[in-house]
Amino acid sequence: MTALIEPIIGRYVHVDIDGTHHRIYFEEAGQGIPLVCLHTAGSDGRQWRYLLADPEFTKHYRIIAFDMPWHGKSNPPETWDGSEYQLTTARYTQTIRAFCAALALDKPVVMGCSIGGRIVLNLAIDHATEFRALVGLEAADFQAPWYDTSWLNRPDIHGGEVCAALVSGLVAPQSPAAARMETLWAYKQGGPGVFKGDLYFYRVDGDLRGRVETIDAKLCPLYLLTGEYDFSCTPEDTLRTAASIKGASVAIMEQLGHFPMSENPVQFRRYIAPVLDQIRQQ
């Protein structure tokens, strides 16, 4: 056989989340410290494929990326009646903890981007002892809204097109064209109302202002990294958040936007490799 086959393996795990049965799709590669990766709102775990295919990382980490329910290959639960999808802080936290428990992960590292970065802060607030380290990409306790989410799901406008077009500006102009298009493709494929439903958590339910000060980075190391071209979660938002957390590490990533791991994996690697090395040596 001469074809290139990537080392990533995808499977389904059956998970009970707050009393509801879910069939969660996840991909993984590598061995060692479990590293669970959380995708951005309205996208799916494919965003992490470059990390999962990096032999320098998979040598030391079991890297796992799962699709949130309603996203990617994780369908809505069988009990779903078609009602509007809406992600809450509680549901998001339950999902991550239930997934980690279902795979019996021992003190995993969790790295999330955007909504994944926000929920990482919530994990640091309420569940720090369960994790070896937490990494928030494009993460802040709050950021100012820059568009009305009602445009994301209405019958007269193509949801995939408008979702992708909105977030296209969050990709740094230096990002390779192919990676940019692939990043946006996931947004074009999202189910109706899913991006909007995720943003309920981001915009309405997940405001962590006044709570992040309670994070103890000695209990669980916390790393915050934000791309300079992210005008949704701006570098100033992340720096403000980091300044209120004792012991948090913070970095602003040049030539990157809101989707560092998928929009420019080579540039992202320059920033995430030292973080993963540091976590490994703790």
Partner: peptide, 26 residues
């Protein structure tokens, strides 16, 4: 670098019936 980055920083304004703008945003 983006039209909506400019509106967010108040360096641009988007006014009127924005439905055609949003329908054909890209």
């Amino acid at each position: 670098h983006d039209l909506l980055a400019l509106t967010k920083r108040s360096a641009a304004t988007l006014e009127g019936d924005v439905r055609p703008f949003m329908t054909h945003l890209q």
